[in-house]
Simulated assay, not measured.
Amino acid sequence: MKSWIFLSVAILTEVVATSALKASDGFSRIMPSIVVIVGYVLSFYFLSLALKTIPVGIAYATWAGLGIVLITVIAWVMYGQKLDLGALVGMTLILAGVVVMNLFSSVTPH
């Protein structure tokens, strides 16, 4: 269970770092740039802890898939990014893939 908490922290810190990446304006603004660097360092650290018991393919697919969806939602809310039907369907498929893989895969520790 602890590994899944580590993976959740890795996902959240990656989402924070990626969100700050736009605000860093090409690393020309100091505070958002620091958030990006610290966020990615923490994200990879916690991902490495999760990988002690979660298979790398499962952990990375979950990390990346949920990160994509969360970043897209943040971009929609914070930056007014438009989401068309294709984007919504694609994100739904990503989420469905993560859920199916984690609930029904025999390689996922439950």
Rank of each mutant, 00 (worst) to 15 (best):
M1R: 07
M1S: 12
M1C: 02
M1D: 06
I5W: 15
I5N: 08
F6I: 06
F6M: 12
S8L: 10
V9I: 15
V9Q: 06
V9T: 13
V9W: 10
I11E: 01
I11L: 12
L12E: 03
E14L: 07
E14V: 04
V16N: 00
V16M: 05
A17V: 03
T18V: 08
T18H: 03
T18D: 00
S19M: 07
A20M: 06
A20G: 00
L21P: 01
L21K: 03
A23M: 03
S24I: 05
G26T: 10
F27K: 02
F27T: 00
S28T: 15
R29K: 14
I30L: 15
I30V: 15
M31W: 08
M31N: 01
V35R: 00
I37F: 11
Y40M: 08
L42K: 02
S43G: 10
S43P: 06
Y45L: 14
Y45P: 05
F46Y: 09
L47T: 09
S48T: 15
L49G: 03
L51H: 13
K52L: 12
T53K: 10
T53S: 14
T53V: 06
V56P: 01
Y60D: 06
A61I: 09
W63C: 05
G65D: 12
G65K: 11
L66H: 03
G67I: 06
G67N: 09
T72H: 04
T72S: 11
T72C: 04
T72W: 07
I74T: 05
V77M: 10
V77K: 13
M78G: 03
M78S: 11
Y79P: 01
G80I: 10
G80H: 10
A87M: 12
L88P: 11
V89W: 14
V89S: 11
T92S: 12
T92G: 14
L93E: 05
L95E: 06
V98H: 06
V99H: 02
V100N: 03
L103E: 08
L103Y: 11
S106L: 13
V107Y: 09
V107K: 14
T108L: 01
T108M: 07
